[in-house]
Computed example of a mutant assay.
Amino acid sequence: MKLYGVTGWKNNGKTGLMERLVAAFCVRGLTVSTLKHAHHATDVDQPGTDSHRHRSAGASEVLLASPRRVAIMQELRGAPEPSLTELLARMRPVDLILIEGFKRELHPKIEAYRGAADTPLIAPGDPTIRAVASDCALELDRPVFDLDDTQVIADFIATELGL
């Protein structure tokens, strides 16, 4: 499986870029999965559902299956957060896994950057960031793409990964 990341600070366009890249690679006939890191307490389940009741009762893992999707919720219950390597090992094989977040990991990344967000660029100090997708002009030692030019960004990633 090939891996490529989209990183950047909050409100810089990471999720929108991820969404557009997934669609662009799927149109090209590739199978794509995503892995997103969240820094806050996230819960995809809702109080009152049967699966939430199972978790609240103490289940370590709840697998919810339906004709349209399968969701596995695993409670850490004080255990350390799994590493990126451990999380990737849980995923089914696909052509490409796009990773949102995980700034400090060593896989290749593109940084999403919006001038109005008023956050520092990560790229200058991070060689794993291979390019920047920005809504403003930047002078860097690596490629800078228009944040909304999804096809050019997808082409760059495809070339980098040999897809």
Rank of each mutant, 00 (worst) to 15 (best):
E86A: 15
H54D: 07
H52P: 01
L76P: 06
A89I: 09
R68K: 11
A57G: 07
V70Y: 11
S51N: 05
A79R: 13
A65V: 15
G58L: 12
L64P: 10
H39Q: 13
A65F: 11
G78K: 04
T34R: 11
S83I: 02
G58T: 13
T49W: 08
R90M: 01
T85H: 08
T42Y: 09
L87A: 08
P82Q: 04
E81A: 07
L30K: 01
H52F: 13
L30N: 00
E81D: 03
V32Y: 02
H40D: 04
H37C: 05
L76K: 13
G48T: 12
E75N: 07
R69C: 11
D50A: 07
P82E: 06
L64T: 10
R55N: 06
L84Q: 12
H54L: 12
R68H: 10
A71F: 05
S66W: 10
I72Y: 00
V32S: 04
R68M: 06
D43S: 14
H40T: 04
R69D: 10
P67T: 03
E75S: 10
A79P: 00
A71W: 03
A41R: 06
R55W: 06
G48M: 03
E61L: 14
G58H: 15
R55K: 15
A41I: 12
T34A: 13
I72W: 09
P67G: 05
A71L: 04
A79C: 10
L63Q: 05
A71D: 10
L64D: 06
H37E: 10
P82W: 04
A38S: 13
E86F: 05
E86G: 06
A79G: 05
R53A: 15
L84V: 13
G29F: 04
V44L: 08
P47I: 08
A59T: 09
E61T: 13
A65P: 02
A65E: 15
L35V: 06
